[in-house]
């Protein structure tokens, strides 16, 4: 039988079911996932319908989508089973997720709270044993009164099932002040996640990595760094951690020790607000890093912290030759004017 005819028969007899928010839709032969959802009046953003604008990005959390529907996506998005609905001709049943904010919150225990410096605390919580995450992703924490804040995961999966989060105490920060002054070991708090595409993927262990962060942007970078080293990354890893003054840096000694013991890891703490920078590099972390690495064609870059730093560093890195899909960014937006 001619291959084309076999394919036609195959499509005729295969009508996969798509499930979204507990409703099931039948995907007619030849239709894309987008066609099916639109035909059933599901509200989904879309535009070009040819796989370039990425408006119809959707996720199939439980099983890998067809490869052709992931063309042009970031490695980390592929790893989390994101795909383009307009490019997906499903061959089997799929469970779909449009908005990951619909994930449930679960109550978790606070294990410890310790000070990292004047303005930052380390919050350790215990996650459910079936919680799967990539270090560098973030979770949402919800207080009893409903206030929600996002924090990045700074550690790899461990046998105690704990997550390490870095919380910056903002001057009028409702949540952060409460977390540092009221919350204590043994308390419970609600957690949701994980979210985000800023994490390590081992597709090229020799690729040079450039990690740039300000303030608690060190949290996801610390997670990414540990993950890369644990997975045997051999390419050079440069970490630039910056702050205006010394009170914004932390883990300095630990990172220096790690750099002295790890031949491919290099650590450059930067201070931008004081001319008395002593043993630290004087300048902004992103500016100094991009000065040290004017050619980024083969690099993978991680940018975490202040949104304006992330935005300008992304642009500069791209203009220095980095491919846009090799730039992973996590901009920490402040949730409300008081926080």
């Amino acid at each position: 039988m001619a291959p084309l005819l076999v394919a036609a028969l195959f499509y005729t007899f295969t009508m996969p079911k798509l499930t979204l928010n507990s409703t099931t839709y039948t995907n007619q032969a030849g239709d894309t996932v987008l066609d099916t959802l639109l035909a059933n009046q599901v509200e989904i953003p879309y535009a070009c319908q040819q796989g370039s604008c990425q408006s119809c990005l959707i996720r199939s959390p439980e099983q890998a989508p067809p490869e052709e529907s992931q063309k042009g996506l970031k490695e980390t998005q592929r790893a989390r089973n994101f795909f383009l609905a307009c490019q997906c001709h499903p061959s089997e049943d799929m469970a779909l997720e449009l908005d990951s904010n619909e994930q449930p919150f679960v109550a978790v225990n606070v294990i410890s709270i310790t000070s990292l410096n004047e303005e930052t605390i380390e919050l350790i919580i215990q996650h459910p044993s079936d919680f799967i995450f990539h270090p560098g992703q973030f979770i949402n924490l919800r207080r009893q009164d409903g206030i929600i804040r996002s924090y990045s995961i700074a550690n790899c999966k461990n046998t105690d099932n704990t997550l390490e989060l870095h919380v910056r105490k903002l001057p009028d920060g409702d949540f952060s002040t409460w977390a540092s002054d009221v919350l204590k070991a043994g308390d419970t708090i609600e957690m949701q996640g994980p979210f985000g595409d800023c994490f390590y993927i081992q597709d090229d262990p020799e690729q040079p990595l450039l990690l740039i962060g300000t303030g608690t942007g060190l949290a996801p970078l610390a997670g990414i760094l540990q993950d890369a080293l644990a997975k045997g990354h051999t390419g050079p890893i440069h970490l630039y951690h910056g702050s205006r003054d010394l009170s914004g840096l932390y883990r300095i000694d630990e990172l220096r020790t790690l750099a002295s013991e790890t031949s491919n890891f290099h650590y450059t703490p930067c201070l931008s607000g004081t001319s008395e920078h002593g043993e630290f590099k004087f300048g902004r972390a992103n500016t100094e890093a991009l000065k040290d690495f004017p050619e980024l064609k083969n690099h993978r870059i991680y940018l975490c912290g202040h949104p304006s730093m992330v935005k300008s560093a992304q642009r500069e890195a791209y203009l220095s030759g980095a491919a846009l899909h090799q730039i992973f960014a996590d901009a920490f937006t402040v949730n409300n004017p008081n926080e």
């Binding site: 070009c48 370039s52 990425q54 642009r315």
Partner: peptide
Amino acid sequence: MESQLAKQKAFLTMAFGGPNN
């Protein structure tokens, strides 16, 4: 930047006389 790059790609496809909507 990422959605902008996608738009630039759509623009170039159009400018090259390729398929576009």
